[in-house]
Nucleic acid binder design. Structure first.
Length: 237
DNA sequence: GTCCAGGGCCGTT
DNA sequence: AACGGCCATGGA
């Protein structure tokens, strides 16, 4: 049987059909309507807290922050370090992450007077460089903030994306920018400018869903995987 | 008990 | 430029 490499757009449509709309970023919109808080800042917080951490643990930390009404730039800047560490403890790496939350909150307060509108009004790639200059913000966290909080046309590459890319295979590298360029060039070709952010948004969410439930690190469920027929890893295993 | 999770920093080579 | 150690909790 001849092995035909699946194209990204086909993979996207297949996963979309299989899993349905994902409605990312995971968010309690009602909370922000009640409290007048900015959901974009919750996304920024969540993007940092979920670094190498299960989302279920991040939710516990976010709930602690919400209970104490800490989901604002000014509150994160003003709370003392040990108190913040205790609130976010369930998300792990809590000393590092508390410092990282303060780093970005202090940055937006100092450079943008705590105004997220002017922050996200910056040109996308300039804002990306700014985010990367903040200690604790790497490429995936920066891109998650740009795409999911800023609605910018930037594709997010994570550990699931890298693993799935190698297994199918789509592109065989660990280099973040290479993988990102590969996805963006393919998808820009097939979708218009007005819909591309939504495609990046959904596709990343779908990849996470696939990685969590099927394309697992040690015990992948290839037989049940929706990509079974398109994946070389499923064939040789 | 072991492994893993929606990474990133820092020091070494 | 690339790699390894480190950071930490909670669920499977």
């Amino acid at each position: 049987m001849i092995y035909v490499k699946i194209e990204i757009t086909d993979l996207y449509q297949l996963l979309a059909k299989e899993f349905g709309k994902q409605y990312w970023w995971p968010m309690d919109d009602l909370y922000h309507k009640k409290n007048g808080s900015d959901p974009r800042f919750e996304i920024i917080i969540g993007a940092i807290l979920t670094q190498n951490t299960a989302w279920s643990n991040v939710e516990k930390a976010l709930n602690n922050l919400k209970k104490n009404k800490m989901l604002s730039i000014k509150k994160i800047v003003s709370i003392n370090d040990t108190a913040l560490q205790q609130l976010i403890k369930p998300s792990g790496f809590f000393k590092q992450k508390s410092a990282r939350l303060k780093n970005i909150a202090e940055y937006i307060k100092k450079e943008y007077n705590s105004d997220l509108n002017s922050f996200f009004n910056r040109e996308t790639l300039d804002l990306r460089e700014e985010l990367l200059s903040i200690n604790g913000i790497g490429p995936e966290t920066a891109d998650s903030i740009l795409l999911y909080a800023g609605n910018k046309p930037i594709f997010v590459v994570d550990a699931y994306t890298k693993r799935i890319c190698k297994r199918i295979p789509l592109i065989y590298t660990d280099n973040y920018k290479e993988i990102q360029r590969y996805f963006q060039e393919k998808l820009e070709n097939d979708y218009s400018k007005t819909e591309i952010s939504d495609v990046y948004n959904e596709l990343h969410a779908l990849i996470v869903e696939l990685g969590k439930n099927f394309c697992k690190k040690n015990k992948p469920l290839c037989k049940k995987c929706p990509l079974n027929n398109a994946c070389n890893f499923a064939k040789i295993k």
